[in-house]
Amino acid sequence: MRHPQVNATVKANDGNYWTVTTGNVGQMSTKVTATSSGSWRWYFASTTTTSLKASDGDTLDLK
C-alpha cells in the first residue's frame, strides 16, 4: 500500500530543528551528527485517527 509522503519537523533537545520525510510506504528515517552521548526514540503523540506510537529506544556513547 502506498502512502503520501509526510514531512515532520523535529526539535532536538539542544533546540535545533530538522525535517524528517516519510517514504512512500510510510517508513521514517533520518541522519544526524551526534555531538554528545545520549538516548533517542521515535515518538508520535497521536491524532484523532491515529493512536500514540513510540519506537524502542536506543543509546549512543561517544568516546
Rank of each mutant, 00 (worst) to 15 (best):
T30D: 12
T22K: 04
S46I: 04
M1F: 11
D58Y: 00
A34N: 04
V32S: 04
S39D: 10
W40F: 13
K31H: 15
T59L: 00
L60K: 00
D56M: 06
Y17D: 14
Y17Q: 14
T21K: 14
Y17H: 14
Q5I: 10
T50E: 08
Q27F: 06
S29T: 15
N16C: 13
T21L: 09
G15Y: 01
V6L: 15
L60H: 00
S51K: 06
L60P: 01
G26V: 09
A45H: 09
S37G: 05
A8Y: 07
S55A: 06
V32E: 05
G38W: 00
A34R: 01
Q5K: 15
P4M: 07
Q5F: 01
S37A: 10
N24E: 15
Q5W: 05
W40N: 05
Q5P: 07
M28H: 06
V10F: 02
G57H: 05
A8W: 03
F44T: 05
N16Q: 15
M1Y: 11
K31F: 12
P4S: 12
V20E: 02
S51W: 03
S36L: 04
T50P: 00
G38T: 02
T30N: 10
A12E: 10
A8R: 05
T22I: 10
P4D: 12
R41D: 08
N7G: 05
T49E: 11
S39L: 03
K11F: 02
V6C: 13
M28V: 14
T35Q: 07
Q5Y: 03
K11Q: 15
K63G: 02
A8S: 14
T50M: 06
G15A: 07
L60I: 10
S55E: 04
W42Q: 03
V32H: 00
S46K: 12
N7D: 11
T35R: 02
N13E: 11
T59M: 02
V6W: 01
G26A: 14
S29N: 15
G57I: 02
P4A: 12
T48K: 09
T9Y: 02
Q5C: 11
M1D: 14
A54D: 07
Q5S: 13
G15L: 04
V20H: 00
V6E: 13
W42P: 01
S36H: 05
V32L: 13
